[in-house]
Nucleic acid binder design. Structure first.
Lengths: 200, 200
DNA sequence: TGTACATCAGTGAACGCGCGTTCACTGATGTAC
DNA sequence: TGTACATCAGTGAACGCGCGTTCACTGATGTAC
């Protein structure tokens, strides 16, 4: 893919640069992303990306958006194999969450580690909203507590996000996903669920 | 502190460089830390730090350690004003956790965002262990569940860490600590505590 | 179907920047006697 | 108390590196007629 002869016009350089960026971040963490390295990995000159991404921040934003898409996909894949039981679905989404974070720490840190990005990007907003929607959906059947439906979402989300983040911090690079999943299933408390999951 | 006349020998340049590093990270995030900027902020030439920190990684490790000390201090301060009730103590430590994270997002991200560091540093291990000890102490009174005492620690820690991390991610830079604390107090579930807090 | 031409999407050289690090040096300090 | 000297802890110049970005250019593509 890198050195083979190409026509002057690349087929879809934008997508190729995003894929290259994801690969760089996966391999070397958030700081490993650079325009020149992404261009090299995509097999074009280092000036070519400028046409598709005016600045490094734009490329980073697009890579983060791709991260969110893969993140959402990881949760959806687990959800597809889950029963309709609300607790099963919360556990399944958590498995997808943990698998993504532990398999791609670089992307996870890029997404949640405070790297600057273009918050106004449509592509990013769409991708991030899709991920949030999964968490909102699985939390909806929980009976609202003191903090309402939003409190339930934050509870479920915080628990699994914290577990992912701390597991990564404790065993940098070599965390066992199955152990983290087992721990998640053990610490998720019993919750009360609506009898009518569609809500009041 | 920056431009005033100094003798050839700095009093405690090592400490001054760590303080400068903390300040840089607080202001500009994990990537804002550099040897040259820390030296400038401490009022010395950019070659001076080499004597105290052989490489940038060493300075970064020391700044992370200082972050852990301030983090621990933030929790201890809140704990000092808490009652002996186990739940009150868990809430108090959580307040310290959230206050630190929301007041110093840059440091928080440097500590937990996957930045590379020297894991073998005594200074860092000591500082990080002190923080973990606080969480272990406040979790000790919880009756062990399926995952034992370790499960309790991870539950409490994950919940507050996830909440801090996600609150930062959702409102980059301008998160309201009091709102986050209120949310934490609302979503922390009822837990069962030992009657003898010292354990079996 | 063929030709002229505008536009698109690349190339490669060049620029300046901040960086970590090295090196010869030197002024300040502290110790031996 | 005074002096010689080793060592400590700085300075400032220099090096090379990777980077984002700009620019004049050019080959490929597609459209008008």
């Amino acid at each position: 893919m890198t050195a083979e002869k190409r026509p002057h016009h690349h087929g879809d350089l934008r997508a190729a640069l995003i894929a290259a960026g994801v690969s760089l971040v996966r391999k070397g963490g958030p700081d490993a992303l650079s325009i020149r390295k992404a261009a090299a990995l995509a097999g074009v000159s280092h000036a070519a990306p400028a046409y598709h991404f005016p600045s490094l921040a734009d490329l980073r934003t697009a890579v983060i958006a791709q991260g969110y898409r893969e993140f959402t996909q990881s949760m959806e894949t687990e959800l597809a194999g889950a029963s309709v039981s609300p607790r099963d679905r919360i556990l399944a989404a958590g498995r997808g969450y943990l698998r993504f974070a532990l398999a791609s720490p670089g992307l996870f840190h890029l997404m949640f580690g405070g790297s600057s990005r273009d918050e106004t990007s449509d592509e990013l907003c769409t991708a991030a909203d899709a991920a949030y929607d999964v968490l909102r959906r699985i939390s909806a059947p929980i009976v609202p507590g003191a903090a309402g439906a939003e409190g339930n979402e934050m509870f479920v989300w915080s628990l699994v996000h914290g577990l992912a983040s701390l597991t990564l911090a404790k065993s940098e690079g070599a965390a066992d996903p199955e152990a983290a999943i087992a721990l998640y299933e053990a610490i998720l408390p019993d919750l009360r669920y609506r009898t009518d999951p569609a809500g009041a």
